[in-house]
Amino acid sequence: MIKTQVITETSRELNFPILMESLTTDTVVLFTSEKTGTVVKKGEDIDEVGYYSRVWLEASNTEYWKVFEGELRLSND
């Protein structure tokens, strides 16, 4: 008999600050700690660029966030 087990990685260790991208909305957040950060790229949700929160879903939650691999450029209007 074959025994199978699915193992899902739901957390990981991160070095802060770090840019994370939402898997569901494409929002990019600059996290300064596990649950604290600022929106730096608006996605498909209501949070605008500059929105700051101390209660985000944990940055290490791989079911919601992935490390942002792109490049962002910030500038004044």
Rank of each mutant, 00 (worst) to 15 (best):
K3R: 10
I18T: 04
E69I: 07
W56M: 05
T32K: 11
T24C: 13
S60G: 10
N76E: 10
E48V: 10
E71R: 15
L57D: 07
W65I: 01
L23M: 13
D47S: 13
T24P: 08
I46G: 14
E44V: 12
T62N: 11
G37P: 06
T10K: 15
K35G: 03
I2R: 15
I46W: 10
T36I: 06
N76S: 11
L23C: 11
G43H: 07
R12G: 01
K66R: 14
G50N: 07
E13L: 10
D45G: 08
G50R: 08
I2F: 07
F31G: 01
G43E: 04
Y64S: 11
N15M: 07
K41A: 09
V67L: 12
N15A: 08
K42S: 06
T27E: 09
Y52S: 13
E21Q: 15
L19K: 12
E34Y: 00
V40E: 06
A59N: 03
E58M: 10
N76M: 10
I18V: 11
K42E: 07
L74S: 11
I2T: 12
N15Y: 01
Y51S: 09
T24F: 15
L19M: 10
P17R: 07
S53I: 05
L19V: 00
V29N: 05
T10W: 03
R73G: 02
S60C: 09
V39Q: 06
Q5E: 12
T38W: 04
K66I: 05
W56A: 03
S53C: 07
I18A: 01
I18M: 04
L23S: 08
R73T: 12
A59D: 02
I7V: 14
K66C: 07
L14R: 05
F68E: 08
Y51R: 13
K35A: 01
L74W: 03
V6E: 13
P17K: 05
V67K: 15
E58I: 01
G70F: 00
V40A: 06
S75V: 06
N15D: 05
E58Y: 03
R73P: 02
G43L: 12
R12W: 03
V55W: 05
V29H: 04
T4W: 03
T62Y: 00
T4K: 14
E48N: 14
L30Q: 06
